[in-house]
């Protein structure tokens, strides 16, 4: 069951093959009660399509922004999302978990 019914990589590859600009975000490490395990993926296109997820919905927006930047620059990013403490961070995990997300462009 490591394979999910929703095959994000396959979707991303199909989008790329169809000529879309695509970035792939992957959870590389988690601490505490983060909602998605390492290996969870989300694909984003420059045209605004999205598939998969890297959290319960808390950080997808920020990851999509980073993905667009990586599509533009071609430089991968390793994002770090920590615990939300209401004021300090606009983006974080309400559950108190911590995740790292690697964002890369599909060349």
């Amino acid at each position: 069951m490591s394979a999910e019914a929703e095959d994000v990589l396959k979707t991303a590859a199909a989008w790329r093959a169809a000529g879309e600009e695509v970035a792939l975000a992957t959870v590389t490490q988690t601490w505490g009660s983060s909602p998605r395990p390492a290996g969870s993926q989300m694909a984003v296109t420059a045209s605004g399509r999205m598939a998969g997820s890297v959290s319960g919905g808390c950080i997808e927006g920020a990851v999509a922004d980073a993905a667009r930047e990586t599509m533009r620059t071609g430089t991968p990013q390793l994002l770090d999302f920590g615990v939300t403490n209401e004021r300090a961070w606009e983006v974080g995990l309400a559950c108190g978990g911590k995740v790292k997300v690697f964002v890369e462009r599909l060349a």
Partner: peptide
């Protein structure tokens, strides 16, 4: 282990994404 994750090796950190065939 059928588990993706980050490992620390002599030359630094690697993320290992496991692609096992489906159960």
């Amino acid at each position: 282990r059928d588990e993706s994750g980050t490992v620390k090796l002599a030359d630094g950190e690697w993320f290992l994404q496991v692609h096992n065939p489906p159960m």
